[in-house]
Computed example of a mutant assay.
Amino acid sequence: MGQGRGSARSALVVGLAILCLLAIVQPTLAAVYNIGWSFNVNGARGKSFRAGDVLVFKYIKGQHNVVAVNGRGYASCSAPRGARTYSSGQDRIKLTRGQNYFICSFPGHCGGGMKIAINAK
Rank of each mutant, 00 (worst) to 15 (best):
L22S: 04
R72S: 11
V14M: 13
L12P: 00
Y59D: 07
G98D: 08
L16K: 12
A79R: 13
R5T: 05
Q63D: 14
R81P: 09
I116D: 03
C20S: 13
A75L: 11
Q26G: 02
Y59F: 13
A8H: 09
V56Y: 08
G73K: 08
G108V: 05
G98L: 06
A75D: 13
I118F: 06
S38I: 03
V69C: 09
G15A: 09
N34A: 12
V54P: 01
Y33V: 12
K58L: 14
Q3F: 10
G2H: 11
A23G: 11
T28C: 08
G6E: 15
G36T: 08
R50S: 12
T28Q: 02
S78G: 09
C77E: 08
G73P: 01
V66Q: 08
S88N: 08
C110I: 04
T85H: 09
G71T: 05
G112D: 03
S78F: 14
I60S: 14
V56R: 14
Q26I: 06
I116G: 10
F102T: 03
N119W: 11
K58C: 05
G43H: 00
L55K: 02
G36N: 15
V69R: 12
D53K: 01
Q3P: 02
V67Q: 10
R92P: 05
L12V: 11
A17K: 07
N42F: 07
K115E: 10
N65P: 04
G71P: 07
G4A: 15
V69T: 04
R81G: 06
S88K: 06
G111A: 11
I103G: 07
A120G: 04
L12M: 10
A120P: 04
S76G: 04
G52T: 00
Y74P: 03
G73E: 04
I18F: 15
P107V: 04
L29N: 05
V69Y: 03
A68P: 08
